[in-house]
Amino acid sequence: MAIYRFRISFEDFDEVVREIDIKSTQTFEDLHKAVHRSTGYSAEKSSSFFVSTDNWIKGDEIAYLPTQRKTDRGVALMETSKLNRFIEDPHQKFYYIYNFDRPFDFHVELIKIILDPDPNIEYPFLVKSTGEAPKIIEKDNFGAVTVSAAPASTEFDFLNEMDFVPEDTEEIEAMGGRGINAEEKSDDADEEETDDADEFADNDDYEDEEYNSKEDY
């Protein structure tokens, strides 16, 4: 039984690297879970390895938690697929997609074959870890953030469109102040109207007197 040493790197974060030793008779599911023990990600996500060319062109798929469509197509399953069945080259490559809902792509390359496994090591075994895996915003958490932010934003826009003034103490006081000024202005306007009316009445009296004087004449 041989030990395969795989070098695993993020496609978009090539400074983040893991090297894992694993038995040739172990499965792709064992490798999948070993990778995410080293990244801190949840392994219980729909993911797939693809047998790859040297240029990272994807071939046959080995899936974990496949969709019904993949199952119907007869895609190989990680839990039943041993690594040595898919190793055809001493530098065999696999293109690996983790979590199809929010995917990360990896390059997986066989870099060493060890013929004498260490009996004191439990495989899979993390040989090397370089760089911190990028953080993942889980779908549920992302949704929660969106939902919590949306109502405030929606309510604010709606109320502004309706010219609504929030019921805030300072704003109420300010509104009260504006109300008093409006009342004072209204009283001033009433007084002006009263003065105009009195002046008009005086003019009427003057006209009556003038008319009477003409009659007397």
Rank of each mutant, 00 (worst) to 15 (best):
Val51Gly: 05
Ala43Trp: 14
Gly40Lys: 05
Phe28Pro: 13
Ile57His: 13
Ala43Asn: 02
Asn55Val: 09
Phe50Gly: 00
Lys45Asp: 08
Trp56Pro: 11
Asn55Cys: 04
Val51Trp: 13
Asp30Met: 03
Thr27His: 09
Val51Asp: 07
Gln26Trp: 15
Leu31Lys: 03
Ser48Trp: 14
Thr53Met: 06
Lys33Phe: 15
Phe49Asn: 03
Gly40Met: 02
Lys33Gln: 11
Glu44Gln: 07
Glu29Ser: 04
Ser46Phe: 11
Phe49Leu: 07
Ala34Ile: 04
Thr25Gln: 09
Ile57Ser: 13
Trp56Val: 02
Arg37Ser: 05
Phe50Val: 02
Gln26Tyr: 15
Glu44Trp: 12
His36Cys: 04
Gly40Phe: 10
Val51Phe: 14
Asn55Ile: 10
Leu31Asn: 05
Val35Lys: 08
Phe49Ile: 05
Asp54Arg: 05
Leu31Asp: 02
Ser52Asn: 08
Asp54Lys: 09
Phe49Cys: 03
Leu31Glu: 06
Lys45Leu: 12
Asp30Tyr: 13
Lys33Met: 11
Ser42Glu: 10
Phe28Ile: 00
Ala43Lys: 03
Thr39Tyr: 08
Ala34Lys: 07
Glu29Met: 09
Val35Ile: 15
Gly40Glu: 06
Phe49Arg: 01
Ser47Glu: 12
Phe50Asn: 03
Lys45Gln: 12
Tyr41Arg: 03
Ser38Glu: 06
Ala43Asp: 11
Tyr41Cys: 01
Asn55Ala: 10
Asn55Tyr: 11
Ser38Arg: 05
Thr27Ala: 04
Glu44Asn: 03
Phe49Asp: 07
Thr53Ser: 10
Glu29Gly: 01
Tyr41Asn: 00
Asp54Ser: 08
Asp54Pro: 12
Ser42Trp: 14
Phe49Met: 06
Ser46Arg: 15
Thr53Cys: 00
His32Phe: 11
Val51Thr: 07
Ala43Gln: 09
Tyr41Glu: 00
His36Val: 00
Asn55Leu: 10
Ser48Tyr: 14
Ser47Pro: 12
Asp30Arg: 00
Lys33Tyr: 14
Leu31Trp: 13
Tyr41Val: 06
Gly40His: 00
Glu44Tyr: 13
Lys45Met: 10
Ala34Arg: 02
Ser47Ile: 01
Ile57Glu: 15
Glu29Tyr: 14
Ala34Pro: 09
Ala43Phe: 14
Ile57Trp: 12
His36Gly: 01
